[in-house]
Each structure stands twice: as C-alpha cells, then as structure tokens.
C-alpha cells in the first residue's frame, strides 16, 4: 500500500506531530510525504530526512501558505490518484483538511487512530475514550487521522528521500487567511512536553493562575495545561485546554492542580505515565486515576512544593 502523509509545519520547520503519523503510515506500507506551503523547501529538506520515507512531494505555492482546506484538498485528491491512503496527524490542521479530502474521494474517514491492526483495521477511541472501537474500512482508499500520543515518533535524521515538485490548482477562491494570534513561548509544546503542570477552575483568575502555576512549571521545565473551566473563564488561552475536545497529551508526569477530573478532562491526559493530583476534595474523581494524590488547599501546597523542589 502506498500512503501519503501530511507534513505539519509553519513553512520554516516541520512539526513533531508529523513523526507519529509517519510511524502509523509505515505500518501500512510505502510512505510518501506531502509538504504544501509557501517558500517551504526547507521543510521538504527536513522531512526528507525522516527514516523510512520514499518520496517527498513538495507543493510550493502562495495559496498553500496557511493550509486553507479549500485549497489543499484538491491538491491531495490529485495525488491520491496514485496513493492508497491519506494520513494526517490529528492536529487542528489535520482535522480541518482530512475530512474534506475524504468526502471528495467518497470515503469515510477513520479519525484519531490508536493502532493499526491490519491493512484496513484500526482501533480508535469513542465516547471520550471511555470505549475503544476496532473498526474495519470497506472503502477503496483510506483517509486517516493519527493520535500523536499513540505512536512512537519516527527517527527524523537517518532518511534520504527524494523531493519531487508538484503543482496544484492553487487558490480555489473560496476563502482567505486574515491573520493569526500565535503566542510565542519558550515553554515546551503541550503535546511533546515531558512534564505538564495543569490548572483548573480553582485557580480563580488569570493573575492567580500565573502566580501559582507558572513558578512550579518553571522549576520543572514543564509545559502548562488547563481544564476547560480554566480556559472558559479566561485564566489561560484556549490552546492550553487538555481533554476530549482539546489537546490529547501523554507526558511522563502530569500534575493536575485544582482540577476535578471530569471524563472530558481525563480523556485528554489519562495515558500520562505518572499522574499527580492536588485537590482539596478527597473524593474528586481525579484521584481515581492519580498515582500520587495530595488532599489539601492548593494555595498552601503549591507554593511549598515549588519551594522544596
């Protein structure tokens, strides 16, 4: 089987999310990549070094700069003439593009796969990860998104794939990019952080969140996450949300502070290696998944913990 993997990037650098998708694709057969963007040859050079990749298709066109699905989908559909599967990391970009491609190919997409069980058989979480379905596709071609935490990252240095330029129709004339607000941060990205310190509704407001959570995260070199309640209340930006409908993370250590542990939150972090919970309610559901729990007032505990570490 020949697979085409969407390379996630910002036109300058490839993003790590690509590597798990390549591993998943490798289980199905020959791996080709698609780098679509503007002035993004450097990304193609980087992607060509991923181990196990046969070919990198490079579509360099101003219309692809912001990965607008309306422009990208027809390009992918063209390339699918000689590929059997289109595979995206389950990032917001992948989730935006893949279903548009699937519908144009008249294929049912398989979202967020956790494992490859056979040529057409996969497992995927449903009901906020409270059930795992094993599903088999009957479509001629496959369109798949891959959960990054479920697959090892492919080696990004030992490959030497060839790069082939491809052209697509460019601008579909339906949509345009207006702008973005992307916070620059020195902190590790949530989906690849080894340690995450996460705060919930109990943190009261943005200022308190910053005062209590940030020093601990700094001490541990950790990424910062949050529950939906903390995001909705404006303590932190939306892209901090961990959960069923936010980011899925699986760090070595996840520290949940003032988070109750609703199923939607657990869905995003319960595959973390070690879970530590700090909550004043000893019956909070978060303790049912925590390896280490401390019951008490976070405003006393967290500063003391930060100091003693």
């Amino acid at each position: 089987m020949k697979t085409l993997v969407w390379v996630e990037h910002d036109n300058a650098h490839m993003k790590d999310a690509t590597l798990a998708a390549v591993t998943a694709a490798g289980k199905l057969g020959e791996v080709h990549l698609l780098v679509a963007g503007a002035n993004c040859r450097a990304v193609a050079d980087e992607a060509a070094k991923i181990a196990g990749v046969g070919k990198v298709h490079l579509a360099d066109n101003a219309a692809y700069e912001h990965a607008l699905a309306e422009n990208i989908a027809p390009l992918v559909v063209d390339l699918m003439g000689h590929h059997d599967a289109f595979i995206c990391p389950a990032t917001t970009t992948g989730k935006n593009i893949a279903p548009r491609v699937a519908a144009l190919l008249d294929v049912m997409q398989i979202s967020d796969i956790l494992s490859v069980e056979g040529d057409k058989t996969f497992t995927r979480p449903i009901y906020a990860g409270n059930a795992i379905a094993t599903v088999e596709s009957s479509d001629a071609k496959l369109v798949i998104t891959v959960r990054g935490t479920a697959f090892e990252k492919a080696d990004a240095t030992s490959g030497s794939a060839s790069i082939e330029d491809v052209s697509g129709a460019g601008d579909a004339g339906l949509s345009s990019f207006v702008g973005s607000e992307i916070a620059e941060s020195e902190r590790p990205e949530l989906t690849s952080a080894k340690i995450i310190v996460s705060g919930g509704r109990a943190l009261k407001d943005a200022e308190t969140f910053e005062q209590v959570i940030t020093p601990l995260a700094d001490k541990l070199g950790a990424g910062i996450g949050a529950s939906r309640a903390a995001v909705d209340a404006g303590y932190v930006p939306n892209d901090y949300q961990v959960g069923q409908t936010g980011k899925i993370v699986a760090p070595e250590v996840y520290i949940a502070i003032g988070i109750s542990g609703a199923i939607q939150h657990l869905a995003g972090m319960k595959d973390s290696k070690t879970i530590i919970a700090i909550n004043k309610d000893e019956d909070a559901p978060i303790f049912q998944v925590a390896d280490l729990g401390l019951v008490g007032d976070l405003y006393k505990i967290v500063p003391e913990l930060t100091e003693k570490l």
Partner: peptide, 14 residues
C-alpha cells in the same frame, strides 16, 4: 476566528 493548536486564526469565507 478559529481555535487552532497554537492559538487563534482568522479566515474570511465567501
């Protein structure tokens, strides 16, 4: 205005 992995993005659609 869209919620994306790194923050927010604005697009204009016909």
């Amino acid at each position: 205005k869209r919620e994306i992995d790194g923050g927010l993005e604005t697009v204009k659609l016909a």
